[in-house]
C-alpha cells in the first residue's frame, strides 16, 4: 500500500511537471504582449522595456520556466501582472468557491445518478427505464452553455424562482446565499448525472445476468436482499472509475458554467486571466486544475481497491 502510494504520488509529480511545461509553452506562444496590455496603447518603447525587465520577461524562456516551477514547488505562484498581488491570495478564495459549487453539484448528481441507474437497470426496458435513458442521452448531448441558458430562462427569467446571476458581494461566501448555487450546480450536474447513470444502469444489467446473482436468487433470498447484497456491491465498483473520470469533465464544465452565471470561481478566473494576458495567473490556475484531476483519480483508485477484495495494491 505504501509502495503503491509512493509510486502513484511520484507519478503525479511527473505528470504535473509535464503539464507545467505544456502550459508554459502554450503561454509562450500566446499572442499579445503583457507590457503593452498593462501600459495601454500609448506606451513608449522605453517604458515597455522597463516593465518587461521589471516582470523578468527579458530573461530567456528556460530560465523563466525553471524559476517559475521552483517557486511553485515551494508554494509561491508569483504575482498577478494585472492585479499586482500574490496569486496565492487571489486563487485561495476562488478555489474555495469552485470547490463549493463542484461539491454541491457532485453531491446532487452522483447519488441521484446511482439511484436512477440502479432503478433503470433493474426495471430494464420498462417505460421508466426508457424515459430515463432518453433523458440522459439528451443531457449528454447538450453542452453546458445551452443547458445553463435554458435553465436560466425557465427558472430565473420566467418563473423568477431563482436568481439568474450568481455574483457574490465581496467578503461573502456562496454559503451565505446558497440559492445562487442551484442553477449553476444543476447545469453542471446534467452531463455527470447522465454519464454515471448510464454506466450504472449498464453495470447493473450485466451483474443481474451473472451466475452469482442467479445463485443468490436460487438461495431463496428476497429480491431486495439480492439487489443490495449481491448486485449493488458488484455493479457500483466500476462506477467509481467513471465518477473519477467525470471529475475531469466537470472541471472543464466549471469554466463554462461559472462564466454563464458570473460565478466567482476558478473557471471564471481562468478566463479573465486569458483575456488580460495575465500569464502567471493563467499558469497557476491551469496547473491547479491538472493537480485536482490527478488527485481525484488517485482517490478513486484508492477507494476502488478498498472496496474490491480482488485488488491488493502493491
Amino acid at each position: 500500500m505504501v509502495r503503491f502510494l509512493v509510486r502513484r504520488i511520484s507519478l503525479i509529480v511527473v505528470t504535473l511537471l509535464v503539464v507545467s511545461l505544456a502550459i508554459f509553452l502554450v503561454t509562450e506562444v500566446l499572442p499579445g504582449d503583457v507590457a503593452s496590455m498593462i501600459l495601454g496603447q500609448g506606451a513608449t518603447p522605453s517604458n515597455l522595456a522597463a516593465v518587461r525587465e521589471q516582470l523578468g520577461l527579458d530573461r530567456p524562456a528556460p530560465a523563466r520556466y525553471l524559476s517559475w516551477i521552483a517557486n511553485a514547488a515551494q508554494g509561491d505562484l508569483g504575482d498577478s501582472y494585472v492585479q499586482r498581488r500574490p496569486i496565492v491570495d487571489i486563487v485561495k478564495g476562488r478555489l474555495g468557491n469552485s470547490l463549493i459549487l463542484a461539491g454541491f453539484a457532485f453531491l446532487m448528481a452522483v447519488p441521484t445518478a446511482i439511484l436512477l441507474g440502479v432503478w433503470a437497470g433493474i426495471k430494464r426496458d420498462s417505460l421508466g427505464d426508457q424515459v430515463i435513458s432518453i433523458g440522459s442521452l439528451v443531457a449528454i448531448s447538450l453542452p453546458e452553455f445551452v443547458t445553463g441558458v435554458l435553465l436560466m430562462v425557465v427558472f430565473a427569467s420566467t418563473l423568477h424562482w431563482l436568481p439568474s446571476s450568481s455574483v457574490l458581494l465581496p467578503g461573502t461566501t456562496p454559503l451565505d446565499r446558497p440559492q445562487i448555487l442551484i442553477l449553476p450546480a444543476l447545469t453542471l450536474t446534467g452531463v455527470l448525472l447522465a454519464y454515471v447513470m448510464r454506466m450504472t444502469r449498464a453495470n447493473v444489467i450485466e451483474v443481474m445476468q451473472s451466475h452469482y446473482v442467479r445463485t443468490a436468487i436460487l438461495k431463496g433470498l428476497p429480491m431486495r436482499r439480492v439487489i443490495f447484497r449481491h448486485v449493488l456491491p458488484n455493479a457500483l465498483l466500476p462506477t467509481i472509475s467513471i465518477v473519477a473520470m467525470n471529475v475531469g469533465w466537470m472541471l472543464g464544465g466549471l469554466i463554462i458554467v461559472e462564466n454563464v452565471f458570473s460565478y466567482p470561481g476558478i473557471g471564471r478566473l481562468l478566463l479573465t486571466s486569458i483575456q488580460g494576458r495575465d500569464v502567471p495567473l493563467l499558469q497557476a490556475v491551469a496547473l491547479l486544475i491538472a493537480a485536482t484531476y490527478a488527485v481525484s483519480n488517485l482517490l478513486a483508485d484508492l477507494s476502488y481497491s478498498i472496496l474490491n477484495p480482488r485488488i491488493r495494491l502493491s
Partner: peptide, 21 residues
C-alpha cells in the same frame, strides 16, 4: 423452496460465488 428444500450446485463455481463477499 429455493435454497431450503431444494438446493442447487452449479457448473462454474468461480462465477457462481459473489466475488466481493
Amino acid at each position: 423452496l429455493r435454497g431450503n428444500t431444494i438446493g442447487m450446485v452449479y457448473q462454474d463455481p468461480t462465477t457462481s460465488l459473489n466475488p466481493v463477499m
